[in-house]
Simulated assay, not measured.
Amino acid sequence: MDPRRRALRAIVYGVFYRLPHPVRRRLVRAVVPKYIVGGVTLVRDSEAAAPGRLLLLRQPPGRGWGLPAGLLRRGEAPIVGAARELGEESGIHLDPHELTPAVPNAVVHAKGWVDMVFEVSVPASTTVLEVDGAEVYEAAFHPIDDLPRLTVATARLLAYYGLGPLVAPDDPTSMERPKLPQHDG
């Protein structure tokens, strides 16, 4: 991407993410009026010992870490959109067939948002992470048992998979949440 286009993207993302959340939601809904569908990828380090490491991104406004994710394009298959967003945001370019649907695959949020969640394992030591500095400031693998400050949306989503700060280790109901399986790389 040429430097002028990269600079313009940085400005557009900077302005968008400085808008209040309700305004951002209204802008997105103006384009996708019925509901919003996103593709999310949980990327584990295939080389890490249990409980493992998870790829997280720091995006504007940079107050917390999140997962590789983004809105699906009209008519785009969720697995294709998740793979596309993973490549755009982290530099990890995979064939969509390398992703596996997470369990649960669809997470429906109260305000009309649906996340289609997929997972994959890659070797962190040989995986080159590339970010554009506009949409994503930083990408890194983090120990699952010592995650950095997460965005609220990421913390809520990870709880569906028995991960993150919203799952109490001594909470007996947390055993009912599906666990994200480890995959051999």
Rank of each mutant, 00 (worst) to 15 (best):
H142F: 15
A159E: 13
R18I: 00
R73M: 09
E98F: 08
D115W: 01
P78V: 03
D170R: 09
E85A: 12
S46V: 01
P148Y: 09
A139V: 05
V23L: 15
V37W: 02
P33M: 05
R29S: 12
Y17I: 00
R6H: 11
M175Q: 15
V40G: 02
L42R: 03
E47L: 13
S90P: 08
D146V: 00
E119Y: 06
E85M: 10
G81W: 00
E119S: 12
R9Y: 11
V23E: 08
A153L: 02
G87P: 05
A124L: 05
K111Q: 14
A30H: 14
A82Q: 03
D145P: 05
L54Y: 03
V37K: 04
L99S: 05
G52M: 02
Y161Q: 09
Y137W: 14
A10G: 15
S121D: 11
L99W: 06
P33H: 06
S125I: 00
T41Y: 01
H109Q: 14
A153C: 00
Y17D: 14
V32C: 03
L67V: 09
W113Q: 11
A124P: 10
S90M: 05
M116R: 12
V15M: 01
H97L: 12
G39H: 01
R156K: 13
V167P: 03
G91S: 07
V114R: 11
L158S: 07
Q182E: 14
T126M: 05
L94M: 07
S46K: 02
V114A: 08
L19Q: 11
Q59H: 01
H93F: 12
R177S: 11
V131F: 08
T154R: 02
D145G: 09
D146L: 06
A48G: 07
A30Q: 11
S125Q: 14
V131T: 14
T127K: 06
E85V: 00
E76V: 04
L86Y: 07
T154I: 04
L94C: 08
L158A: 07
A7G: 08
Y161M: 09
R58H: 08
H97R: 15
R18K: 13
P123M: 00
R18C: 04
R63N: 13
R63T: 14
R24A: 07
R63L: 12
E130N: 12
E135S: 15
R29T: 10
R74T: 11
A140G: 09
V23C: 05
V80T: 10
D2S: 13
L67A: 06
R44Q: 15
L86P: 01
L150K: 02
P61I: 06
R4Y: 08
P104Y: 04
L72Q: 03
P181T: 07
L129Q: 08
N105S: 10
L180Y: 05
V167I: 13
G112R: 09
V32K: 11
L19M: 14
Q182I: 01
E85F: 01
T151R: 11
H183W: 09
D170F: 00
V12E: 13
H109I: 01
R25G: 01
L57H: 04
D145E: 15
A124K: 08
V117H: 05
L180R: 06
W113A: 05
P60D: 07
P3T: 11
P51Y: 12
I92N: 04
